[in-house]
């Protein structure tokens, strides 16, 4: 699959709900090869459909989900890749979107990709994102009873009582 073809397929399927597309060509320093990294800025509503559309090409590999606090909003970026298993065939595909802090709801993709659970649970505890339809929403890396979300800029820090 050509990176341009992949980007066009997504644009044709989702139209303006894909807000921006960027394709970075990462060149090998030996000068003999390059691979594409595709960045999609999307509406959060189409995430689930976009991942389902990606699965029609190949069952994708999800590295992880990265996220940060923008102040009033939370930004999430899903780092996928497809084309593994073929020599020099893998390309990275990233979906990025923001959700308001007042309503941090995102549809879980665990029904499509069961292996996304660790990454989603990590975003729940560290950023306070709410995933709808997630099979297990407990903390994973942080204690089960921990309050607050450490990656939020307004996080209050460690309470004195936790250290006792």
């Amino acid at each position: 699959m050509e990176p341009n073809g992949l980007a066009e397929s997504f644009q044709a399927r989702f139209g303006p709900r894909i807000r921006a597309t960027r394709i970075d060509e990462i060149r090998s320093n030996l000068g003999i090869y390059s691979y594409p990294v595709i960045w999609f800025e999307i509406d959060r509503e189409i995430l689930h459909e976009a991942v389902a559309h990606l699965i029609t090409f190949q069952f994708p590999h999800l590295a992880t989900i990265s996220g940060r606090d923008l102040g009033g909003e939370l930004e999430l970026c899903y780092h996928f890749s497809i084309g593994y298993g073929q020599r020099r065939g893998e390309q990275s595909v990233n979906f990025r979107f923001t959700v308001p802090k007042a309503d941090p709801k995102v549809r879980s993709i665990c029904d499509l990709i069961p292996g996304a659970l660790t990454a989603e649970r990590e975003k729940i505890e560290f950023l306070g994102v709410e995933f709808e339809g997630i099979p297990d929403s407990r903390n994973i890396f942080l204690p089960y009873d921990m309050e607050g979300h450490p990656w939020r800029k307004d996080a209050a820090g460690v309470k004195g009582t936790w250290l006792e």
Binding site: Y35, F59, Y84, G85, Q86, R87, R88, I113, P114, G115
Partner: peptide
């Protein structure tokens, strides 16, 4: 494949994921 196994764990199950080959 579905649980996103990587490295020797994935390859031992026949999933040919190796970034050195796929995206050198």
């Amino acid at each position: 494949l579905e649980l996103m196994a990587v490295g020797p764990t994935a390859r031992a199950s026949g999933v040919k994921k190796d970034i050195r080959v796929d995206q050198p």
